[in-house]
Design a protein around this nucleic acid. Structure first.
Lengths: 152, 152
DNA sequence: CAGGCAGGGTTCCCTTACAGAACTCCATCT
DNA sequence: AGATGGAGTTCTGTAAGGGAACCCTGCCTG
């Protein structure tokens, strides 16, 4: 947990970082997304400290991104993405695209996505929820919204 | 810098985290994107430690996300997004959308985007680069790519 | 029915990194 | 000549990550 509390800031980016901004959290989410659900499995794959893994899983569960489910009569648990968590995977897909483009080098992308709708290998691109056309950094004006704490 | 070096991992998500995964980096990028370019301006807005701000700016410049430009005959510098950096803003826009939906509560979003193409208030959604249809976590198969270090 | 085992954590110690205030440097402005 | 403003550096305290060892609980086996 970074000492400065991003969750209190009046900014959706900062608030999102409060949920998944800690080191390892996005990678934990990635692993759960691709089907790794158990403590030891995550620990072995990421080689993360068990202490930190415990903390991160707890944090993600507390924020409703993961769900901790018993899967046996013994005290055994699996972690699953909630709907809230599954929507965070959008973020991972965009990160993957950027990393593929700018950091993968000559070896190319470590992983590919095949889109069910068209069956092709593809990546994600950002489109406008209103007109469906592409929408990126240079294509928007930034305006204050209703949650922009009026009064100071 | 988190001690575990994500940049060495065979994963574009981990590599991207190596560039902007440290605390504050996304918020610095956000501020530069909306036009804050100078050290003191960033420091005052974020209330980040000057030491950490120095480290983060250096890291982002080293990774080609920001460019440090003199703007005076005196030793004065401004930070600007490179093309590589501007494409990272995609990530911020997705974070903003998720935070708006899941964390903003009754107050609503602190900030709105107006899309130049249609002039409407809108958010981003992920579409397929191949068929242009929506593409999210549940819509893809994950396959090994050429960069998936063969041999072990 | 005692011992072992597997899953899922805790505990402990060490080191690094963040927070925050104070200090420095340098070129102009007055 | 001294003040000012921008852009950092330095220093000290505290908290968080790394990593190894340990613990607990409920089956499974001999």
């Amino acid at each position: 947990m970074q000492r400065t509390n991003f969750g209190e800031m009046v900014c959706s980016i900062a608030r999102t970082l409060d949920v998944i901004g800690e080191p390892w959290s996005p990678l934990i989410l990635r692993d759960v997304w691709v089907g790794m659900r158990r403590f030891d499995e995550l620990q072995a794959d990421l080689k993360i400290s068990r202490k930190v893994l415990t903390e991160r899983l707890g944090h993600l569960v507390d924020h409703g991104v993961l769900e901790r489910r018993p899967y046996d009569n013994r005290p055994r648990y699996e972690y699953h993405l909630t709907e809230k968590g599954a929507e965070l995977v959008d973020l991972l897909m965009v990160m993957k695209g950027w990393g593929d483009k700018w950091l993968a080098g000559a070896a190319g992308p470590p992983v590919l996505y095949r889109h069910h709708a068209c069956g092709e290998i593809a990546d994600v691109d950002l489109h406008c929820t209103h007109c469906d056309k592409p929408m990126h950094a240079a294509d928007v004006d930034i305006l204050p919204g209703p949650g922009a704490r009026a009064g100071y």
